[in-house]
Design a protein around this nucleic acid. Structure first.
Lengths: 232, 232
DNA sequence: CGTCCCTAAAGTGTATCCACTTTTTAACGT
DNA sequence: ACGTTAAAAAGTGGATACACTTTAGGGACG
């Protein structure tokens, strides 16, 4: 409810999409959204453009906006992009990590372990944990790209941990990752991180292929039902 | 002059920026642009948003749009991102390359060699040459990301080859890259490509640090002179 | 001569309106 | 009953208008 109308529209739509409230392939009706948050179509339009460029919204025939539907292949692709980018980031970060960085990372892990209910919060903390590492690489543009790739996958991560209650039995995996980072060996760190991401990837991808994802978000091959239920 | 006003505005601004006609750090005046191409501020606004998300435009204090100024560090960073992404792409592409793909690539190289004057055209053909390789990876999203990173660097490449007349004495480097790809060894291909990109990178970065870049595009530490010269 | 304030100019965000396109509905003839 | 087409409804892109913000100038005053 703060800031410009455009930011509101953007935040609203992004939340709806990332949380899975707006399922994949669903048509977005700018007018409806506009009415819902009390602005005109224009800021919604711009928010949609922005989301489009971030890959969360697709314009179908005749510029009608849909929630982007991702094929399993595209998700695999996004994970591979993440591996490439994040390995670069961690390799560059590792020589720069200070002791106080490690303290902060440990603290963040503890914070994550304390959260066992609130899955979105855990995901948020988890994303921050990784960003804290990458930040040491001093490559802001790279961080942007990583965030973009991450956002494109998030709805699926959300569904995945939501279904399997995964907030990770007190984060052994992350703790051991941290141990490896302490060795400050770029190649080793990159390998470990690649494994880490790929293990998450395989879980998510298996989950998606198994078709267990609910109405939350859907994949491209699922029915592209329109959003509005009134008057028909 | 075709398509929607927004596309025109986008194409116009992008051309101006990529060609270096609009120097870095220069303030963009939506109204001026609008008048210049005969549309209202609105499509220009959206084009700016789009360019912003592609990294070519930055919004300064109070949302005033500027041509993005890149520090030498950011350019280095972008090249490293390219290395990461394009190595992934080539590694995945190499096993899929067919004989007809190689024929097409050879043909493209010949086309490039024939162009010695028209630098922008050469750059265009060169970009396509690389894309032809990556296309075989069957990773469209990755291709997008590569294009984005590529576009962010292009103004500097343009200035660089423009100054040094580089359209490459008949492309030995690319020919030898192609020879390596023929071996269809992903790791080898990735290494070769990394070298290839880094060699371009070091040329561009040296050129930038040497301060020989003209008024075309400027770096962040250079004077942020406004664009409009009328009425002041 | 410098500094503060006040006004004017330029910019930005966005609501509204209109022109044009696409899609749906309805009607009609076969 | 079906397909075809005409009319209506719903969208979309874009121009204009307006409210609000920021920037720049220009005195008035110290």
């Amino acid at each position: 409810m703060s800031g410009t109308a455009q930011q509101n529209a953007y935040a609203y739509l992004k939340e709806q999409i990332l949380s899975g409230a707006l399922a994949a392939s669903v048509q977005i009706r700018p007018e409806q959204v506009a009415k819902a948050i009390g602005v005109s179509r224009m800021p919604v339009r711009e928010a949609l453009l922005q989301l489009h460029l971030e890959g969360l919204v697709t314009f179908g025939a005749n510029r009608r906006p849909f929630v982007t539907a991702r094929s399993p292949n595209e998700i695999i692709e996004l994970f591979e992009i993440r591996v490439a980018l994040e390995c670069l980031a961690v390799a560059r970060a590792v020589p720069n990590l200070t002791d106080s960085n490690f303290e902060a990372l440990e603290a963040q892990l503890k914070r994550m372990d304390r959260v066992t209910r609130d899955r979105p919060l855990w995901l948020e903390l988890h994303a921050r944990f990784h960003e804290m590492i990458y930040a040491a690489a001093n490559m802001p543009r790279l961080l942007d790209e990583i965030r973009r790739a991450q956002a494109a996958i998030q709805p699926f991560l959300m569904m995945y941990i939501d279904l399997y209650h995964i907030p990770e039995m007190p984060g052994v995996e992350h703790a051991s990752l941290l141990q490896i980072l302490r060795k400050r060996d770029p190649a080793l760190a990159a390998t470990a991180l690649a494994d880490h991401i790929r293990s998450a990837a395989s879980g998510v991808i298996y989950f998606i292929l198994s078709g267990r994802h609910s109405g939350g978000a859907a994949l491209s091959h699922l029915d592209p039902t329109p959003l509005n239920m009134e008057k028909r």
